[in-house]
Structure formats: C-alpha cells, structure tokens
Amino acid sequence: MENVFYFLASLTLLCALMVVLSKNPVHSIIFLIITFFTISAHYILLNAQFLAAVNIIVYAGAIMVLFLFVIMFLSVGKNDHDPKASAVTRITGTIAGGLLFIVMFAALKDAHVGTYDAENFNSQIGMVENLGKVLFTKYLLPFELASVLFLVAMVGAVMLGKKETGERHF
C-alpha cells in the first residue's frame, strides 16, 4: 500500500509541476485534470470514496471544462506563441517565489506528523452515510451557510448574464 502511495504522490507532484511548466495553456489544463484524478486516487486510498467521486464530478467534470472553454476561445490560432518575459517580470517572479519558499519553510519547520490510533480508527468514516450524518447534524449550520453562499453566487451570475431590456442575442 505504501508503494502505491509513493507512486501516486510522485505522479501528483509531477503533473502539478507540469501545469506550471507547460508552455501551452491547453496542456496546462490537461495536466491539471490529471492532477485532480491523482488526488481522487489519494482519496480512494484513504477510503473516502464519496469525496473521490465528487472531486471528479465537480472539479474534473465541471470546473475544468469551463476553464478549457475559456482558454480554447482565448488562445485559438496562436498555439506556438511564446512571448519573451521581460527582466522586471523575471526579477519579481524570483522574489515572489523565494518569499513563498521562505513562508513554506517557516510553516513546515515545526510541523510534525500527527499520530493516529490504529485500534479505534473507524475505516468507514469516509462513506457516504457517515459523511451525510456528520454534515446534517454536527456541521449543519456551516453546511447550510455554504449552500446559501452558492445560491448567492448563482443569483449573481444570472444577474450579470441577464438580457437588458431591448437587447437581442439572436
């Protein structure tokens, strides 16, 4: 099992790196999709099948399709176009990356791997039934608030996309 984890983890990191390193934005998106798949595989290793499926449906199935949509529209016809980055961009990029590295280092310096109680560990905790029970009892208020947030976002999108009076699309 450990070997599977190491294989998956290295695959995830490799794909995530390729998202950043790819010259072509469409390739970046495809690597991001593969990254979501490997993350779902991690969820399955943790016996959280519901999260794995929902991760695929929501991220790989819906959000990335919209990403692909936008990128395809924007970058059509200039596939091999690679503008040279200016000196200022490079310097700021290096500084920002270095700062992020310092923050990560500082955060991980004192971190230690948490232990778990193998005796009392409930392997069924990630199943749909248990997840649903926890969401609708213990975390009911945050859950409802999150759904209200989604509703507000949806109404906002409809407001922005609504036809003005007298405007015609067809």
């Binding site: 495809i30 999709i33 499926a53 695929i56 449906i57 199935g61 399709v65 395809m72 749909v128």
Partner: peptide, 29 residues
C-alpha cells in the same frame, strides 16, 4: 461500489473532454 451512481455520473461528465480536445487540436475554427 457504494457510490455507483456517482461513478456513472462522474464518467458521464468526463465524456466531454474527448470531443473538446479533439475539436481544439484540429486547429480548425
């Protein structure tokens, strides 16, 4: 699997990639 319906639904939602990638890679408007 105890998430069979979600599995089917996830696969269905991936079906679109074959078409989109093929259509874009053709380099034809």
């Amino acid at each position: 699997v105890n998430i069979g319906v979600l599995y089917v639904f996830g696969i269905v939602s991936l079906g679109v990639y074959g078409l989109m990638i093929g259509g874009w890679a053709s380099n034809n408007k």
